[in-house]
Simulated assay, not measured.
Amino acid sequence: MGVQQLRDETSPAHWKHVGTENNPADCASRGMLVQAMIHSSKWWNGPDFLWQSLHTTQASVEDFVVAEDDPKVKKVVSCLTEAQEASSFLDRLKYFSDWHRATRATAVCLRLQKKFKGKEQSMQKVNTAKQNIVKSEYVPVTAAELKEAENEILKQPQAQAFPEEKRALMNKVNKEEFIYGVGRNKKNVLMKSS
């Protein structure tokens, strides 16, 4: 019978501790001569209390306390993870001490966002004797990027304070783009008729 089967088919409340003096497994694990093992009643028949009635053995069995430093006791480690709600853009701006630092950091983030979306290529390949190394050099943000960052920062509290209005405006802009071909940075493709 395997350990898992014992756990599935029995309850630990029914288990009793068998001391080393009555444990037949200790005959083999602690070293016993073959000649002594052949004549050992404990090895062949198990401990004597297994052959007695249940009522007489219950009185002699004492509660067993496992020592903390017992090497046979397995230690259980459990981990708890907790999901945190992502902080908003505005919460992250609180870390900056002034407006210029906040806009500069936002501009760099917007540049990286464009780069990761494939809209900007500022990577240079440098050949060395061993391998190709991709080198990226920091380029200071431009005035146009700072202006775009300021606009993005100003859009965030507006979007948070007026979500329904923003949604309505976005739907109107999308509808106009579909009907008239109007885009944010595009000129009218079809002129509106009055």
Rank of each mutant, 00 (worst) to 15 (best):
T10S: 11
T10D: 00
T10I: 01
S11D: 05
P12T: 12
P12W: 11
P12E: 09
P12S: 12
A13I: 02
A13N: 03
A13P: 03
A13M: 07
H14R: 12
H14I: 07
H14S: 10
W15L: 15
W15V: 02
K16A: 13
H17K: 10
H17I: 00
H17D: 08
H17M: 11
V18S: 06
V18N: 04
G19S: 04
G19D: 09
G19T: 06
E21M: 05
N22I: 01
N22H: 04
N22G: 02
N22S: 09
N22P: 01
N23P: 00
N23D: 15
P24E: 04
P24L: 04
P24F: 05
P24D: 01
P24N: 02
A25T: 07
D26Q: 05
D26G: 06
D26N: 10
D26C: 07
D26S: 04
C27F: 03
C27V: 14
C27T: 06
C27H: 13
A28C: 08
A28N: 00
A28G: 06
A28M: 08
S29F: 15
S29K: 12
S29P: 00
S29W: 09
S29M: 13
R30Y: 10
R30L: 13
R30K: 14
R30A: 05
R30H: 08
R30C: 02
M32R: 11
M32K: 15
M32N: 11
M32I: 13
L33S: 14
L33A: 14
L33E: 14
L33I: 00
V34H: 07
V34P: 04
V34E: 10
Q35H: 08
Q35S: 13
Q35M: 06
A36F: 06
A36C: 06
M37V: 12
M37A: 13
M37K: 14
M37D: 03
I38T: 07
I38C: 03
I38D: 14
I38Q: 15
I38N: 09
I38G: 06
H39Y: 05
